[in-house]
Amino acid sequence: MSETIQYTHKDMASDQEVRWCPGCDDYVILRAVQRALPKIGKKREDIVFISGIGCSSRFPYYVETFGMHSIHGRAAPIATGVKLANPDLSVWMISGDGDSLAIGGNHFIHVLRRNIDLNIILFNNEIYGLTKGQFSPTSKLDQITKTSPYGNTQPPFNAGALAMGANARFFARVSGNSLKEMQTLFVQAEKFRGSALIEVMQNCPIFNEGAFDVYNDRAQRPNTQLFLEHAKPMIFGAEKNKGIVLKGLKLEVVTIGENGVVEEDILIHDAHEPDPTLHTMLVKLVNPIITGIIRSVDELTFGDRFIGQMNARKSAANGKTFNDLVVSGETYYLK
């Protein structure tokens, strides 16, 4: 960048009236994004937001950058096209649990597999909001919803585990009411080269009120949520005396000072470990829930490989054009 531009969060707000239900965590996510964007060192015109369909997908209308509110489930391939057309852009994909894990499930796994350089915010509220309260692929078993009046019979996806299965190189999780943590994670996601997936545990006050209270509630949170930091021990609890250890093939919660457990026994978080085994175990924990950057592994991005191959071929071809193509191989003259 030749010039430095000083934006504030106000520069990132469009003139459109925000139309989410009062009390929705989506407002917090929007504020976090608008506060993160001035810190990523990109000009507004070089930022693109692509969304699918759902409550969350109204998001691009509210950010003063380029944006597209597309069709249900297809934000991932559209964002892929944007990034491949212009690799210099900062491309953000906004999606929900229905959009990315149900109708767009195929695109979701393939975008992660390819590791294209996108920032993907997954608004997981464990419910269909825009269509008014049907269960989603992350709704809990037995949950009563509009389409499961006698209890949900479809076991849910764990978004993190699905992402690990699809070989996600970056996965973070965060509470939908944690403005500061989100802001930091969004900046880190942008800095990460590759598909950076952030799952937000987002409360829907209308159709799924309190789904994440046990994790997001400020009073309960210290004992139910472990916010990971790279190279730090996995310690949590109101008294900072609980931790995670590996016992056999399972993770276990222990208390420091009990049963001879000392701080040195606690696992140290290594987000950069290429082997996803431990990361996969961590994303599956429910008590405590693991938040923060669980996995962040540097690898060539799809753009590096795809555009890289194109550029290599181009420089080897030395300015070849269409006119060279048509006369290549076998041609003949009729006189």
Binding site: I71, G73, P77, L84, N106, H107, M310, K314, K320, L325
Partner: peptide, 24 residues
């Protein structure tokens, strides 16, 4: 080498969607 970005997508819908994204 002729600046053709030929992208084999995961399905028909992703194929057209990626093309729309590129046009955007």
């Amino acid at each position: 080498e002729l600046s053709v970005k030929a992208f084999q997508a995961e399905d028909e819908i992703a194929a057209v969607s990626s093309a729309i994204g590129s046009s955007f």
